[in-house]
Amino acid sequence: MTGTTAHTPLVDLRFHNDLTIDPAHAPNDISMLDFTIFLHEAYALPQELVVSLRAHPELQLRLLLVARNGTRRFTNVPQIVRTTKAMGFEVVLDDTDFENMAGFAEVVNWCNVIMGVHGAGLTNLVFLPMNVVAIQIASCYDLEEVAEHTYEPSTRDSGMLYLQYGISVDESTLLESYLRDHPMFIDPQSIHHQGWFKMGKIYLKQ
C-alpha cells in the first residue's frame, strides 16, 4: 500500500518491532497510539479512555482473560475466575467469534484489565482503551525477556500499564513430563542453544 495523509496510518511490510510502530521510522511520525486510535475509529469503539470508577462507582471492573485452548494455557481457569470475581471483577473469557470481529472488539473495549499467557491472544489489547492494565504471564526458563520484548513496548506506547509475572518451575506443567534432573531444568541454555524450534517444542508447550 502506498500513499498516506497526515491523519491516516500507513500499513505495509516494514517491520519496526513486534506489534510496534516506531514514529522515527514511520510516515508522518505515526505511533502505536495512532494505530490503536485508527482501529477504535474503524470499529466505532466507544471508549478511548477507560471509564473512571471514581466518577462511575456503579460500574464493575472487567477483566479479559485470554485463556487459550492449546499450549501455554491456564490449567486452573475456574480457580482464576473465582479468585478474580472475589476481588470484584467481572471476568470475560476471550471466546473470539471471528465472524463478528466488531462485536468482539467492543466487548474488549469495555474491559479494564487484560491478562494472558504469552501468545497471540494478547494482541487483542489493541482494542482496549488507554489507561488500562495489561498483565502478561511468562513461561519459565529464560522466556521472560522474550515475552516482555513482545508486548511491553506496544502496551506502553498505547497508553497502558504493563505488568508481567514469570511462573516458577513448581507452577509449570513441565514437571508432569520431565524429571527435575533433566537438562531442561538444570541447564536450560543447553536447550536454547539448540535453536528456536527445539526450545519451543519444550518450553513453549508448558
Rank of each mutant, 00 (worst) to 15 (best):
E41H: 13
P23E: 03
A55L: 11
T20V: 08
L53M: 10
I37C: 11
H40P: 06
H40I: 03
D22K: 01
H25G: 04
P27T: 06
I37S: 12
N17H: 15
E48F: 09
L19S: 15
L33S: 14
L19Y: 12
D29M: 07
L45T: 01
I21K: 04
L53V: 04
H40V: 02
F38W: 15
N17F: 08
L53C: 05
A42W: 09
E58L: 01
P23H: 02
L33E: 14
I37N: 09
S31A: 03
P27D: 06
D34A: 01
P57R: 02
D18M: 14
F38V: 00
E48L: 08
D18W: 14
P46H: 02
L33W: 07
I21S: 05
E58Q: 15
T20R: 08
P46G: 05
H40S: 12
M32G: 13
I21L: 11
H40T: 07
L33P: 04
L45Y: 00
L19H: 12
D34P: 03
H56F: 11
L33I: 05
P23F: 00
L49P: 06
D29A: 10
A44M: 08
R54H: 10
N17W: 13
F38T: 01
D29F: 09
L45W: 00
T36D: 13
I37Q: 13
D22I: 02
Q47C: 11
S52L: 05
S31F: 01
A42H: 15
L19W: 10
D22P: 06
L45R: 00
P23K: 01
Y43W: 14
S31K: 02
A24C: 09
A24I: 03
I30E: 15
A44R: 15
P46N: 05
P46R: 04
D34Q: 04
L19R: 07
S31Q: 04
L53D: 11
Q47L: 13
D22Q: 05
A26S: 15
I37E: 07
P46M: 03
V51L: 11
L45I: 01
L39V: 09
S31P: 05
H40E: 08
L19M: 10
V51H: 06
Q47G: 04
T36K: 09
S52Q: 05
F35W: 12
L49K: 15
P46Q: 03
P23W: 00
T20F: 14
L39I: 11
M32I: 13
H56G: 10
S31M: 00
V50F: 03
I37R: 14
